[in-house]
Design a protein around this nucleic acid. Structure first.
Lengths: 208, 208
DNA sequence: CCGGATCCGTAACGATACTG
DNA sequence: CAGTATCGTTACGGATCCGG
């Protein structure tokens, strides 16, 4: 189980030695949104195979990036959370090349916080101090924009400027500009509570 | 040659579909320092194997991230250069876990610009407007710090605050703090021309 | 000689079956 | 539910070969 190394004394090569293998960064992505159980991780990564998931988790725990908690679930350690800027930067690169959903592609509400961090326009966020709550496909999370930075978390927002309850499809259409904020809140399958201008700010801050 | 995909409609997954395979990011790293020929790339990535290098280059060219130029060398396209923030972020993660050189590990002066961007402390760079020239193992490149950001390039600096000619070993010792700027310039195998305070600023801006 | 292409043994992956 | 074991397939790594 000695992990294969590039054998280069280089920061990038070291990072890839640690998290560069197949599935590893997606695993870190899913854990970056909160702890998950083995079964949840497996269900969220179709195609990984149970042995490979177990091996990846074992390696990540040995490296100190992930811990198995008393409750039996897996969570990022403080060291593991240090990978987040890299995940965001990669996602920013990928976002420009994402395009439309392809046949058979999976989409999960869980990935939205990372997608928003990647799509964020800091230069548009001067003087913005907002907090949003999203409820998408039974996932509830909050997004806060303050001091030109985005923070996110699972669960309800404390003092949200709006609460948006919708399916993933409508959210994707808002993100790619096919749907305006005004049109979104009129849809039958969408519930919106709060200030429409805040939703318009949000759309502008995270527009692709 | 249909490239294997994670089949997830996620920015991160898309990025990894494009550049997540083994060797690809290291290839992009080496090309980010300037164009290189097939043979140079091969020599700089021991272990890759000629077939794999050819396959990776072909894929990257097809994706529009790399181009083969009339001179016969390979270079990043504008799209390929957009990956750099992700390489820097990953390198920043890896730098904290790099440690001392291990037995058999390769080191190349070519990687220094990326390492410096990863090690950069923007919060220490207020009011700094410096330009440095390095000549390491026959590699010549410049580093500029201005407006809290780092830019680098191959070749000589225009108006350098110093020119430092040294081997990689001494530079590594400076980077990890084992050698002070004052001690460095006194070494037999080191040539230093310019302002010592500038070198001290440099060491502080890029200290690990 | 440089820039690959071909071939082949090994290691990693992916799917399924099995176990505590 | 949380993995381990097994096995066929794919990717990788090293060597050799080929065309300009």
């Amino acid at each position: 189980m000695a992990l294969r190394s590039y054998r280069q004394h280089c920061s990038l090569a070291r990072a890839l030695d640690l998290v560069g293998e197949r599935w590893t960064m997606l695993l870190m992505r899913d854990l970056s949104c909160g702890s998950q159980r083995y079964g949840e991780l497996l269900a969220g990564l179709p195609g990984i195979g149970t042995n490979l998931l177990a091996a990846r988790l074992k390696t990540l725990v040995a490296e100190g990036l992930v811990e198995k908690r008393a409750a039996g679930d897996y969570a990022l350690t403080a060291a593991g959370r240090e990978l987040e800027p890299a995940l965001v930067a990669l996602a920013r690169f990928g976002a420009a090349r994402l395009g439309e959903p392809r046949e058979g592609e999976l989409w999960r509400a869980l990935w939205t916080p990372l997608a928003m961090k990647a799509a964020f326009h800091p230069e548009r966020s001067a003087d913005v101090d907002d907090e949003y709550e999203f409820r998408i496909d039974d996932e509830v999370f909050w997004v806060r924009v303050r001091n030109g930075a985005v923070t996110t978390g699972g669960g309800q927002a404390k003092l949200p400027d709006f609460v948006l309850t919708t399916g993933g499809q409508a959210l994707l259409e808002l993100a790619n500009g096919a749907l305006t904020p005004g049109d979104l809140v009129e849809r039958e399958d969408v519930e919106f509570a709060g200030a429409l201008p805040a939703l318009e700010r949000c759309a502008r801050l995270f527009a692709r």
